[in-house]
Every structure is written in structure tokens, then in C-alpha cells.
Design a protein around this nucleic acid. Structure first.
Lengths: 161, 161
DNA sequence: TATTGTTATACTCTATAACTATA
DNA sequence: TATAGTTATAGAGTATAACAATA
């Protein structure tokens, strides 16, 4: 069934069957949709993707320099500045000059930052439940295992490149 | 094991374990990586993602208006103009005025456009083999089925939104 | 007046380079 | 001089608005 009815066009936009038959396409489509949806939810809470990434990273411990944070997240140190500014203005992180090397800033979560991180994690967990609700527990486990193998095998563990 | 060794920083960028444990994150990560990798390969052949999308869409048959193509691909009709220009300059598509309504352009693939589409499909098939090589046939089938259920259940069949 | 394709404009992201203060 | 953080600049990509031809 080819694309017809030039006048009756609601936001129909059925995806071509050829593409739905491709596992690669399904993966890309699902990945993009998840990213978009997560970004939407984050924005409702006033955050960008990088701001969440910073909170999540700092949730594992303070980091001694901004350069290191940038490198971990795969972005330039100059881009990171604005991200941190936004978080600092809201009192979620703290920059402290390193007394031993006054060029450096040690960055850490404030107590409020830790609470915010928990809220975001809860939101994302809800999102995951919602996105995967069509799969039973066993299928979810299999999906997770398959994705993990793919990500590791292709060395996609680092930041997007 | 927290992040240490501030001086010894190669492009290490190990992804936090918390994130690797999330199926949603793995999906997003894999999807993004696939999109980036496909885009890279397309660019080597001198195409953008939308140009490929147009070729793939027209591969299923001519379309009577540019507006319809734009709507199918989920972009604005003004954005589509430049995409089509590039394809037309290279002789891969043809715009023909509709004699019954001279505002409209019917767009179709040229023979060379059809050949180019075949080449791109071959390239993407190679990419899929490479990306999924860690999975055996059975796992691939299960992965495909799971992704299909997710995409349909969440109504992610249309263009990215 | 409404619609099709087009052009022009503005806004967001990101990537790069230049600047300062420290070492 | 080299490095950490910052600021400024430029480019791609995209979203919106204005425009000319046709209905």
C-alpha cells in the first residue's frame, strides 16, 4: 500500500514498512524517542540534558576540576561553564577554589542538589516503566542483555561521538 | 570505585555504572550511536539524513506534492526545499510541475537516484551486520521483536517528535 | 482568500578561538 | 610557557515568518 490520499492528510506519517523491518532503524527510532521524551521531562523541571548528566556524575563523588567533568561528559570545557552556572545559581552545586592550585575549581553537589538528583532519578524510573510496559520481565531482561552486549561490543560505552 | 587519577586522563570516559544498569539509557545510547554512525557513512557519500529519507520515501513511489513529503518526514515544507535542491542538482530526483495545478511539484526518483538508493541500502545493511555482530540469529530476532513491540506500544512509528 | 513552493529571518547548539589568572 | 576557567565568535541546524505564483 503506497502513500496516497493527498488531501486527507492528518499527521498520519506512517513509517515505511521497509524501515520498520530494520532492527537498526527500530533501535535508532526508539533511542531518539526516549532521548526526546527524557529531555521534555527534564525541561519541565527546568533542566537540560547536560545539567542532569553533571548531577548524575557528581552523584558518584566530587570532581577536582571542571576539565575532568567536561572530559567525562564528552564536551568542551567552555561549554560546561554555562551548564555549571545554571546549577550553581539554583544552589544545586558548589564551586570551590582549590587552595593548592588556585586555577582549579572542585565541584560538588549541595544537599539540595542531591535531593534534586533523587527526584530526577524517580522521574526517569517512571519513564522507563512507561516505555517498557509492553514487555514482561523476562523480555525486559533479554532486551537489557542484548543491548549491553551491543553497546560493549561496539565500544559505545563512552560519550556519544 | 570513584573517579580518581586527575592527571592520568586519557579519553577514558567510562560511563557510570548506574547508567549502564538502565535499559532506557542503553537504548538511548545505542540509538544515538547508530544514528551518528549512519550519518557519518552517509556524509562520506555526500548525503545528509534527510536526503536519504527523501530517497527512501520516493523509493516507494512518486509523491504528488512537496508538502506531502515534508509532512511524511516530519519537517517543515520550507526546510525540504534545500534538501530537494541538493538531490536535484545531482540528478537523483526530478521535480515536475503538475499541469492541473501549476502550484504543485510532483517529485520522483531518476534512474540514477534509484541506483544511489540501492547503494545506500547496501551500506546500511553492512552497518547493521557490524553493529549486531555480537548477537546470534535467535537473539537478533528477539531483539527485533522487543523493539517492535516497544515502538508500536509507545506510538513512536511517526517521525521523531 | 487560501495554498504551493520559495526565500528570508531568528533562534538554538555546538565547536573553536581568544582572554585572564594562576602556575 | 603552559594550564584552568571564562568569554567571545562563528557555524550548522532548525523553526518561524514573509513572499510570489497560482488556485
Amino acid at each position: 500500500m503506497s502513500i496516497e490520499s493527498p488531501e486527507i492528510h492528518q499527521p498520519s506519517t506512517a513509517t515505511p514498512k521497509e524501515l520498520l523491518a530494520s532492527t537498526l532503524f527500530l533501535l535508532a527510532r526508539a533511542g531518539m524517542a526516549i532521548k526526546t521524551r527524557t529531555l521534555d521531562e527534564l525541561e519541565k523541571a527546568g533542566f537540560g540534558m547536560y545539567q542532569y548528566s553533571v548531577l548524575a556524575l557528581l552523584g558518584e563523588g566530587d570532581l577536582p576540576t571542571q576539565r575532568l567533568i567536561a572530559s567525562e561528559l564528552g564536551l568542551d570545557r567552555s561549554q560546561l561553564v554555562g551548564v555549571l552556572d545554571g546549577l550553581e545559581e539554583r544552589g544545586l552545586i558548589m564551586r570551590r577554589r582549590d587552595p593548592d592550585d588556585r586555577r582549579r575549581h572542585t565541584v560538588s553537589l549541595t544537599p539540595e542538589g542531591k535531593r534534586e538528583l533523587v527526584r530526577i532519578r524517580t522521574m526517569i524510573a517512571r519513564l522507563e516503566d512507561s516505555a517498557l510496559k509492553a514487555l514482561d520481565g523476562e523480555s525486559r531482561q533479554a532486551l537489557h542483555a542484548a543491548l549491553e552486549r551491543i553497546v560493549v561490543d561496539n565500544d559505545w560505552c563512552g560519550p556519544a561521538r
